[in-house]
C-alpha cells in the first residue's frame, strides 16, 4: 500500500523534498502549495524541482541534509541532518531542541 501511494502520488520523502514539505504542514499548518513554495524558497530551487529525484539528491548532498544513500562519506544523517534542516527551514524540531538541551554543558 505504502509503495503504491508513493509511486502514484507521493512526493518521495528524503529521496526528494517530501520530508521537508511535510515538516511545514506539521509545524506551521501550511497547506500543500504554501508548504512547497516555502521549502522551494529556502532551498533556492523551483517548486517543480522538489519532487525530482535527480535534482533533489544533488541539493540534499550540497546542503548536507541526508539522502537515502548515507554511504561511508561525511554526509549527515539521522539527527545530524535534522539539526541542519531546522536551521535551513527556520524551524523548531522537537528532537533537535531536546538533543541540544541534553548536550548543553552544565
Amino acid at each position: 500500500m505504502a509503495l503504491t501511494h508513493m509511486h502514484a502520488s507521493g512526493m518521495g520523502g528524503i529521496r526528494t523534498a517530501g520530508d521537508l514539505v511535510a515538516r511545514m504542514q506539521m509545524s506551521k499548518k501550511m497547506r500543500l502549495n504554501e508548504a512547497k513554495a516555502y521549502v522551494a524558497g529556502k532551498l533556492k530551487i523551483s517548486v517543480a524541482d522538489l519532487s525530482d529525484e535527480v535534482i533533489m539528491n544533488e541539493v540534499r548532498q550540497d546542503l548536507d541534509i541526508a539522502t537515502v544513500y548515507g554511504g561511508m562519506g561525511e554526509q549527515s544523517r539521522g539527527i545530524e541532518a535534522k539539526f541542519r534542516i531546522a536551521k535551513l527551514l527556520d524551524l523548531e524540531i522537537n528532537s533537535v531542541s531536546r538533543f541540544l538541551r541534553k548536550t548543553e554543558w552544565r
Binding site: A2, H7, S9, A22, V47
Partner: peptide
C-alpha cells in the same frame, strides 16, 4: 494497471 498523478501534482504521505 497503474495510474499516477502528473508531475508537479504530488502530495505528502503520512502513514
Amino acid at each position: 494497471k497503474f495510474v499516477s498523478v502528473q508531475q508537479g501534482n504530488e502530495l505528502i504521505l503520512t502513514y
